[in-house]
Amino acid sequence: MIRSVGRVSLDVVEGLGDFSLFVGRSFFSVPGTRRLWRRFARAVHEQGTVCLPVVLIVGVFTGLVLGLQGYHVLSRFGSEGLLGTMVSLSLVREMAPVLAALMLIGQAGSAFAAELGIQRNTEQIAALETMGVDSVGYLVAPRLLAALLVYPFQAALFVVVGLWGGSVSGSMLLGVDSGVYWSAVDRAIEFRDLRECFSKAAVFGLLATSICAYQGFHAGLNHSASGARAVSAATTRAVVLSSIMVLVGDYIISSFFV
């Protein structure tokens, strides 16, 4: 019993160390990678343009629901005037970075993990290595760099459409005057909140993308399954782990900021 606890904790420590080495290797490989720019543009496309619709849709509906629920709660206290404050702070501080990251994990992260897993299984990664190409620098580094840029952008777009969603449900459909709503929004959002929002988004991007990359890259290497099963297992692990880590990271960062 005690021995198995020890073994599990050793495994965890080993895994974390391996993971950190992997992330470090990705960043250190950046200077040596050629034609990084084109791969970077492709990665921005995969995480940015391709995922934009889902982020915008989720953003609008989050704003709509926040407006609706917030209105009914606040109107009990006669404080509908604070609806803009509530919607904007919820969006900026929590909803936008977390939900945008979860959506990006679902769409781009899973695809990335599966792609890497297949590339591992069809020896494409081995082929890169035998060509003398740094496989991590070629496959992972551009995506990590793109995530640092794309996640904050997606969070910002999420906030913008979310605020519109809140104004639609709160002031167009329900009773809050739109001037009151927007002036409450303006009063509520401070640079501190935006900084929290964007730094959270960047950290989530880094976490999620590196977890997905790590899982995909090692598909079928550390575990008994192989072939399609290894890829599907790696993809599942990538999505579950990175979603959990985004929420855990959110709590930790929030407790530092507040």
């Binding site: 990678t33 590339q119 069809t122 020896e123 494409q124 081995a126 082929a127 060509m131 003398g132 190409v133």
Partner: peptide, 26 residues
């Protein structure tokens, strides 16, 4: 050079891009 059993071609790249990849990167 290595020729893999499953060819290990990069399916997101065209034939020309596949061939020029080792030159481009190394």
């Amino acid at each position: 050079g290595v020729l893999f059993q499953g060819n290990a071609l990069f399916d997101s790249l065209t034939a020309l891009e596949n061939v020029s990849l080792p030159l481009e990167q190394t």
